[in-house]
Design a protein around this nucleic acid. Structure first.
Lengths: 251, 251
DNA sequence: GCGAAGTTGTGACGGTTTGTAACAGCCGCG
DNA sequence: CGCGGCTGTTACAAACCGTCACAACTTCGC
């Protein structure tokens, strides 16, 4: 789960995160000669505990990466998008399950050979390290979200990251949300009901507008960023949503 | 935050520079020649947003690594122990603040030179890579904890990790908890009250026994593991300490 | 020895979120 | 066209945890 187009979100108001598009002579070119494999929605690429024999590059589609507790609780630790790498780890076994959310096309690379290539190339190495650091930053953002953010902030943060992945030029971007509510809930540490309720509130106050079942328009990107907990709470232009606003910022 | 497998400190071992070319065998030996700096409890090594000029090796003591939301909420993303590396990142700025919990001794290495050494040495690279993977695995564990575990499971998981860090397979290990309840709360995504109450419950049902203010004995390691959510829930020997056990100890 | 400040433990109360429903919308199928 | 199956939405009661308050305790300084 190496997010090149990382899910990292800027922290603090001041630091926009300039994500670098995949370089042509880059990690991805390693996979150029490999055949493309297709995975239908819901099918697993590998399971937690499988021997980690391959590294994958996502060519097309979206995957979810998750772990499951013994009693069935599922935690999605990330979503993987085209251009990302999957399964990069020095462990003998995969630490998580990877499943296709949409129909997904992958290229496969044998694990040992991948490491050899990395070791050999002084150009690829920094790229891989940068990927790892990006992924680490994303993981820390997620820890912040899960540890201290409210349901509304979590959903807003999630939508914001997706909106920014597209390239934030559009002030009212149309964003695709290929995953189900259950996926979102298991990623954000909430239940589907809470996700649903929160999205309804965001719709009611005009921040977002549903476009189709798995797409929407972000009407107020700034307000979304405010709700995500990125801006100072006393910023008056960043008021909360509906009844919750009173409870959260009682001024 | 880079937990290395080895906690060895070759303090007195001075490398005979006349015989061996500068190709250190382990990451820690890189820092061997650097002077030791001391940080008193509560003092910061660096702040989030500082230019990332150095990499540190922890020689002695414990640090907390955290981020703070704009309204003051603090999230501790990890604790750093002797033998760990601190500040390894390819970012220009530190992504978090690092503060001494106890009196801490560090060695400092200039960031650019650290990268050069890593790039040059085919021995160090896999070590650093393994460290990053370990850190990534820990981050995922933490995401699981924060997203889906109950207060009791979180505290139990935390104590379990500390108990296992000691490595001695003593069945009733004495564990040191140098951090305050507030640190634990901000690490586990709870409040100090909840942490306090949960530890009291664990004490009441004999899983742990307080030894001093910042130390305790783990009396039932297996039960602690069960409470941490690692074992199957229908394992009868691993009953909860909540309502069920309150019936057994009705004071 | 004494008081102040910080840390920790305990209780009562309330709020956010969850769990359990029932219901509505979308889709493929016969 | 009507039918289940699935996903998503809404409502209500319950649970867990957070908030507030206060007491006990330690640590430090004087």
């Amino acid at each position: 789960m190496l997010s090149q187009a990382t899910m990292s979100q800027p922290r603090g108001a001041v630091r926009p995160f300039a994500t670098v598009p995949p370089q042509p002579a880059s990690l991805n070119s390693l996979f150029g000669g490999q055949p493309i494999e297709t995975f239908e929605p819901g099918t697993a690429v590998f399971w937690e505990g499988d021997d980690a024999r391959h590294v994958f590059e996502v060519v097309e589609g979206v995957l979810r990466v998750f772990r499951i507790l013994s009693d069935g609780r599922r935690i999605i630790t990330g979503f993987i998008y085209p251009g990302d790498l999957l399964g990069v780890s020095l462990k003998d076994q995969y630490l998580y399950t990877a499943e296709a959310v949409t129909r997904t096309k992958l290229r496969r690379y044998e694990h040992g050979r991948f490491q050899d290539e990395i070791n050999r190339s002084p150009e690829l190495r920094p790229q891989l390290f940068a990927c790892l650091c990006d992924e680490m930053a994303a993981a820390q953002d997620q820890m912040v979200l899960l540890a201290r953010k409210s349901a509304e902030e979590r959903v807003a943060s999630f939508l914001l990251v997706i909106a920014r992945r597209l390239g934030d030029d559009a002030r009212q971007p149309v964003i695709e949300i290929p995953m189900t509510r259950l996926d979102m809930a298991d990623y954000l540490g909430l239940t589907i009901e809470t996700v649903s309720r929160t999205m309804t509130r965001l719709t009611n106050c005009g921040v977002i507008a549903p476009s189709s079942r798995h797409a929407m328009v972000v009407r107020k990107l700034g307000k979304l960023a405010a709700l995500a907990g990125e801006i100072d709470a006393d910023d008056k232009s960043a008021a909360g949503v509906g009844a919750v606003q009173q409870a959260v910022w009682p001024q």
